[in-house]
C-alpha cells in the first residue's frame, strides 16, 4: 500500500477506535441511568431510592393480581426470580398486561418496598406464535406433567432474565 494511503488508513482507524473508546467509557459510567428500570432484587437490596419516582420491571406473578370491586385499583406482585415486590395501581392497564407476562411500572416506593404506581407498561417478549400453535404447545406441556402455578410461572417468565 502506498505510504500516504497507509497513513490515512491509520487515521481512519484511529478516529473509529478513539471515538468508540470515548463513547464506551461514557456509557459505562452512565450504565445505571441507561437502565430503564430496577429489577425487584435491586429494590429489595435498597439500591432504588424511596419516595422518588422510579421504574421497576419484572414478571407479573401468576395468581397475584387482585382487582378491586369498587374502583380501578389493582394489586399485583412482580418478580425477577430472586425477589418479589408488590405494586398497587389505579387506572387502565395496557391490553397486553397479563399474569406471567413482563411489565414495567412507574411510581414511588414506600418504606415496605411497596410500589405505588402511576403508570403500568406491558413489556412484550420476543416470541411470536399463532394462536393455534400456542394452544397446542400449552396442551402438550400440560399432558407432559407441567402443571400448576409454579411450572406456569417458570414457563412464562423464563424469558425475563435480569442477570447483570
Amino acid at each position: 500500500m502506498h505510504p500516504l494511503r497507509k497513513q490515512r488508513l491509520f487515521t481512519v482507524l484511529f478516529i473509529v477506535i478513539a471515538s468508540s473508546t470515548v463513547i464506551a467509557l461514557m456509557l459505562y459510567a452512565a450504565r445505571e441511568s441507561i437502565n430503564l428500570f430496577y429489577p425487584p432484587s435491586k429494590i429489595v437490596d435498597g439500591e432504588a431510592p424511596v419516595g422518588r419516582n422510579i421504574k421497576a420491571g419484572g414478571c407479573v406473578v401468576p395468581g397475584s393480581v387482585v382487582r378491586s370491586d369498587k374502583s380501578l385499583q389493582i394489586d399485583f406482585d412482580i418478580t425477577d426470580g430472586r425477589a418479589t415486590i408488590s405494586v398497587v395501581y389505579e387506572g387502565i392497564l395496557p391490553d397486553l398486561f397479563a399474569e406471567g407476562e413482563a411489565a414495567v411500572v412507574d411510581g414511588k416506593l414506600d418504606a415496605d418496598f411497596k410500589l405505588h404506581a402511576t403508570r403500568v407498561l406491558a413489556k412484550h417478549d420476543e416470541n411470536y406464535t399463532p394462536a393455534e400453535v400456542s394452544e397446542n404447545l400449552q396442551a402438550s406441556e400440560e399432558s407432559a406433567g407441567y402443571k400448576g402455578q409454579g411450572a406456569e410461572h417458570v414457563k412464562t417468565c423464563e424469558s425475563v432474565s435480569y442477570d447483570s
Binding site: G57, K123, H124, E126, N127, S164
Partner: peptide
C-alpha cells in the same frame, strides 16, 4: 442485552 429495557430482545 446490555441494559434493562422495554424493547424486547432479538427475535
Amino acid at each position: 442485552d446490555w441494559w434493562y429495557s422495554l424493547h424486547q430482545p432479538a427475535t
